[in-house]
Computed example of a mutant assay.
Amino acid sequence: MDITFRCDPALFDVLPRPIPGSAALPEWLRKMAPRMPSDVHQRSIRTVKQCPPFVDAMMHGFLILLPCDVTVGAGQFTWNWELPALGMKHHPRAPISFHVPEQIAGTPFAHENASIIKFNSFWTVELDPNWSLMAVHPINRADLPFRLITGVVDSDRFHDVGINFPAVWSDKNFSGVLPKGTPIAQCYPVPREAPTLVFEAMSDDKMRRYDDLASKIMAAPGVYRQQHRSKRVTP
């Protein structure tokens, strides 16, 4: 699949471009130890750094990046971003805007004095026919001071303007700079056709295969990674 990103010509060499998830693994993952001593197990055990599903999820799809530094403090968001003249009169110029709290009233996101921000988009995204775009909080990134609100957009049809990404500002104690290039949304194409759910009782052969694989997993580490994991091809 080709995923086509477009922006105002005046911004083409200004904006940070969306990047594959594999290109933005956080520093804490790079620095964390692959094994740690466990009081429960009385031995060293593998950390999530050696868990392929954990890491592969973070490498999935592509990331939309914050286009400029945003300073946060005392409940205020400020930025100093000089943009050239743009070719479209309704195009945003601010990196973020805001929603009123009433828009999430009755949801688990709502709490007293919640700040509902909206990351404005400067790229349009076009997908192949019959595919939609799933946008989620950057996967396993609980370190970020906001939580993106998940959404799906039919980007094979809706691609003439950018997608904006709403989020709840979750870290009320955060004070400092959210730097340019911070991942704000992790996105990946999903088929719009609903899957068919099939349910079966295991056959004798499937039960034997279950026990065989389970015994291999219990006997030694790395079975999934070495024998079943598909090699990721990165751009």
Score class of each variant (00 low, 15 high):
204 D>A: 15
205 D>L: 14
180 K>L: 03
206 K>R: 12
180 K>M: 05
172 K>P: 01
178 L>W: 03
188 Y>T: 10
192 R>F: 01
180 K>V: 01
189 P>V: 08
200 E>I: 00
202 M>T: 08
194 A>T: 02
203 S>K: 10
196 T>G: 04
192 R>H: 06
188 Y>K: 13
200 E>M: 04
206 K>P: 00
182 T>V: 07
169 W>M: 06
196 T>K: 14
181 G>V: 08
172 K>N: 11
177 V>R: 13
180 K>E: 06
180 K>W: 03
194 A>Y: 02
169 W>E: 05
211 D>Q: 14
211 D>F: 08
174 F>N: 07
198 V>H: 09
197 L>H: 06
209 R>A: 15
197 L>R: 08
202 M>V: 05
185 A>T: 09
193 E>R: 14
188 Y>C: 05
208 R>E: 14
172 K>W: 04
178 L>N: 03
200 E>T: 08
195 P>S: 01
211 D>T: 07
187 C>G: 06
212 D>Q: 13
202 M>Q: 13
197 L>D: 02
179 P>K: 09
177 V>F: 08
186 Q>A: 00
187 C>H: 03
189 P>S: 12
209 R>L: 15
182 T>Q: 05
181 G>D: 15
191 P>W: 13
189 P>Q: 11
182 T>H: 02
175 S>D: 12
173 N>G: 12
195 P>V: 01
170 S>R: 05
194 A>L: 02
182 T>G: 02
186 Q>H: 06
178 L>T: 03
188 Y>G: 04
192 R>Y: 03
172 K>V: 11
175 S>T: 13
181 G>N: 11
191 P>V: 06
181 G>K: 09
203 S>L: 12
194 A>N: 02
196 T>N: 05
180 K>D: 02
184 I>S: 02
172 K>D: 15
173 N>W: 04
199 F>A: 06
182 T>M: 10
185 A>V: 02
193 E>N: 10
196 T>Y: 07
187 C>P: 04
208 R>D: 09
204 D>N: 12
192 R>W: 03
195 P>W: 01
171 D>S: 11
193 E>H: 05
210 Y>S: 07
194 A>P: 00
209 R>Y: 05
185 A>N: 07
170 S>A: 08
169 W>C: 04
170 S>Y: 01
190 V>Y: 11
180 K>R: 15
175 S>I: 07
211 D>E: 15
195 P>Y: 01
194 A>H: 00
205 D>M: 09
181 G>M: 09
203 S>T: 15
201 A>Y: 02
208 R>W: 10
197 L>Q: 09
185 A>L: 03
200 E>A: 04
169 W>I: 03
172 K>Q: 14
202 M>P: 05
180 K>I: 02
183 P>D: 00
195 P>K: 01
191 P>E: 14
184 I>F: 04
189 P>H: 11
207 M>Y: 14
196 T>C: 03
209 R>V: 12
186 Q>N: 04
170 S>K: 07
212 D>W: 10
203 S>Q: 08
204 D>H: 15
187 C>S: 07
178 L>R: 05
175 S>C: 14
190 V>W: 06
212 D>C: 11
174 F>K: 04
207 M>D: 12
169 W>V: 02
176 G>C: 03
210 Y>M: 13
198 V>E: 10
210 Y>D: 09
205 D>Y: 11
178 L>F: 05
197 L>Y: 07
